[in-house]
C-alpha cells in the first residue's frame, strides 16, 4: 500500500513539475501579454494542483491534508483574480505607463 501511494506521489509531483516547465516556456515564448497570461495561469494552477495532489498521501493527519488543499484553493483564487485584473489592465490600452 505504502509503495503504491509513493508511486502515486512521484507520478503526480513529476507531472506537476512538468506543468511548471510548460508554464515557464509559455511565459517566455508566447508573443503577447494576454497569451502569456493564459499559458501562465493554466500551467501554474495545474502544476500546483498536481503537486498538492501528490503530497496528499504523504500528509500526516487530516489537518495537514486540509491545509494542503487550502493552499491550493487559495492559490487558485489568487491566480484567477490576478489573471482577471492583469488582463483588464492590459486591455485598458496597455499597462499604465
Amino acid at each position: 500500500m505504502r509503495q503504491v501511494l509513493d508511486i502515486f506521489t512521484v507520478a503526480a509531483v513529476s507531472a506537476g513539475a512538468l506543468f511548471f516547465l510548460v508554464g515557464t516556456v509559455g511565459l517566455l515564448r508566447f508573443p503577447d501579454p494576454l497569451t502569456r497570461l493564459h499559458a501562465l495561469t493554466k500551467a501554474d494552477n495545474l502544476g500546483l494542483g498536481l503537486v498538492v495532489l501528490g503530497l496528499l498521501p504523504q500528509a500526516e493527519g487530516f489537518l495537514a491534508g486540509v491545509k494542503l488543499v487550502a493552499v491550493w484553493l487559495l492559490a487558485q483564487l489568487a491566480g484567477a483574480t490576478v489573471t482577471q485584473l492583469v488582463a483588464r489592465a492590459v486591455r485598458r490600452g496597455g499597462p499604465p505607463a
Binding site: A70, A78, A80, T81, L85
Partner: peptide, 15 residues
C-alpha cells in the same frame, strides 16, 4: 466595478 477584486476581497478575508 472590479468584480474579480471584490470577489477576492469577500472570499479571502474569512479564510
Amino acid at each position: 466595478q472590479d468584480g474579480a477584486l471584490a470577489l477576492l476581497a469577500r472570499l479571502l478575508p474569512p479564510v
